[in-house]
């Protein structure tokens, strides 16, 4: 539905070739993040351990999606597609959890 607004962009981005330099930088960043996440798991942060681990994982995944998978250089439609996938995934997890979280709640 959105592709009419940025048709121009689409044409322009047709053959965007990401340079190896960017790939290398991203790869190094990913490796560093891996080290970071391992290190972080050895630090006592209580419930924040999981949050930090997930945050790093999300960051890494974002890097991969944006650069390795070229979404940064792709049309809005592609970005929307990725967003739709994420949305449905969160719908599955979140709406299922709405049951599990509130099962133990008391009744009126």
């Amino acid at each position: 539905m959105s592709d009419h607004q940025n048709h121009h962009e689409e044409q322009h981005e047709e053959n965007h070739i990401v340079s190896p330099k960017i790939y290398a930088v991203i790869a190094v960043a990913l490796l560093l993040c891996t080290a970071l996440t391992v290190a972080a798991s050895y630090v006592e942060m209580g419930p924040w351990n999981a949050v930090v681990a997930l945050a790093i994982a999300v960051f890494k995944a974002t890097l991969v999606v944006l650069f390795f998978m070229h979404i940064k250089y792709s049309s809005k439609l592609m970005k929307l597609t990725v967003g739709a996938g994420l949305f449905t995934f969160l719908a599955l997890v979140g709406m299922s959890m709405s049951d599990y979280i509130s099962r133990a709640w008391g009744s009126f």
Partner: peptide
């Protein structure tokens, strides 16, 4: 989807 499970012991709130 959960309306298929209303009597199966899911949380009343969900």
């Amino acid at each position: 989807w959960e309306h298929h499970m209303f009597i199966m012991g899911v949380s009343n709130y969900s």
